[in-house]
Amino acid sequence: MTATSDRGVARAHGSLAVYPGTFDPFTPGHRDLVARARVMFDRIIVLLAVNADKQPTAEATARAARVRDTMPAAWANVEVDTWTGLTTAYCLRRGATVIVRGLRTAADLRYEYQLAAMNEQLGIQTVWLPSRPQLAATSSTVARAYRSAQSARPSHNAQE
């Protein structure tokens, strides 16, 4: 049975999806993807992955708190969690059947296709949502570089 959301999207009853990433930082594009996914699924978990190959600017719990702070109170069907290990293991543990991933470029699709094929072998489907054109240019890497450049800039208000 499906229910229709406020946007007219049919939602699968009892569905749980996971949107994984390092979210360092959580960009407007990430938030937009959550906004769209939350009307497709009964519940969505924004999963802050702890990846030993990446060097995030903050611990996972601090990043999770920042992500939670960006979620409107009305988004009661959105949860934020952290996890170390395979996303599919988390999905199986929580009973999620879908992983939501965003696509910004054709290069993203090539990489995401490989992940989706592996996840499907482990019993978890992947749903890709394209980035909105006005948000596609900003990746977390670009946002970090911008933030770093801004903090390194000398202040115009400095007293000499």
Results as ranks from 00 to 15, higher is better:
residue 50 V to D: 01
residue 141 T to C: 01
residue 61 T to L: 04
residue 56 P to S: 00
residue 96 A to N: 12
residue 24 D to M: 09
residue 105 T to N: 06
residue 72 P to R: 10
residue 17 A to V: 12
residue 56 P to K: 03
residue 38 R to T: 13
residue 158 A to V: 01
residue 52 A to Y: 08
residue 160 E to Q: 02
residue 42 D to P: 09
residue 140 S to M: 07
residue 114 Q to D: 11
residue 53 D to L: 09
residue 79 E to W: 00
residue 73 A to R: 03
residue 37 A to W: 09
residue 157 N to L: 05
residue 43 R to A: 14
residue 126 T to A: 13
residue 123 G to W: 02
residue 74 A to V: 13
residue 90 Y to M: 04
residue 62 A to G: 05
residue 81 D to Y: 00
residue 92 L to Y: 02
residue 117 A to D: 14
residue 127 V to W: 03
residue 78 V to R: 03
residue 126 T to N: 14
residue 3 A to T: 14
residue 13 H to I: 15
residue 141 T to G: 03
residue 109 L to Q: 04
residue 112 E to F: 08
residue 122 L to V: 02
residue 55 Q to M: 03
residue 38 R to N: 06
residue 92 L to D: 05
residue 132 R to G: 01
residue 80 V to K: 12
residue 38 R to C: 14
residue 83 W to E: 02
residue 64 A to F: 06
residue 63 R to I: 06
residue 111 Y to R: 02
residue 7 R to S: 14
residue 32 D to I: 12
residue 117 A to K: 14
residue 47 L to Y: 03
residue 17 A to H: 15
residue 147 R to N: 09
residue 131 S to T: 12
residue 105 T to W: 07
residue 45 I to N: 05
residue 147 R to T: 15
residue 155 S to R: 08
residue 159 Q to R: 03
residue 47 L to K: 04
residue 63 R to Q: 11
residue 36 R to I: 13
residue 137 A to T: 09
residue 132 R to L: 13
residue 106 A to D: 07
residue 118 M to A: 15
residue 14 G to M: 09
residue 94 R to Y: 00
residue 152 A to L: 08
residue 154 P to R: 06
residue 87 T to L: 03
residue 133 P to F: 09
residue 119 N to T: 15
residue 80 V to E: 09
residue 6 D to F: 11
residue 104 R to A: 07
residue 157 N to G: 07
residue 136 A to P: 05
residue 29 G to V: 15
residue 113 Y to M: 09
residue 123 G to I: 13
residue 37 A to P: 10
residue 96 A to L: 04
residue 154 P to V: 12
residue 62 A to R: 10
residue 109 L to I: 14
residue 78 V to H: 06
residue 50 V to A: 02
residue 85 G to P: 00
residue 5 S to A: 12
residue 79 E to C: 08
residue 66 R to W: 00
residue 132 R to F: 05
residue 109 L to W: 03
residue 146 Y to C: 08
residue 65 A to I: 03
residue 118 M to V: 15
residue 72 P to W: 01
residue 60 A to V: 15
residue 25 P to C: 15
residue 3 A to D: 07
residue 17 A to N: 11
residue 84 T to I: 08
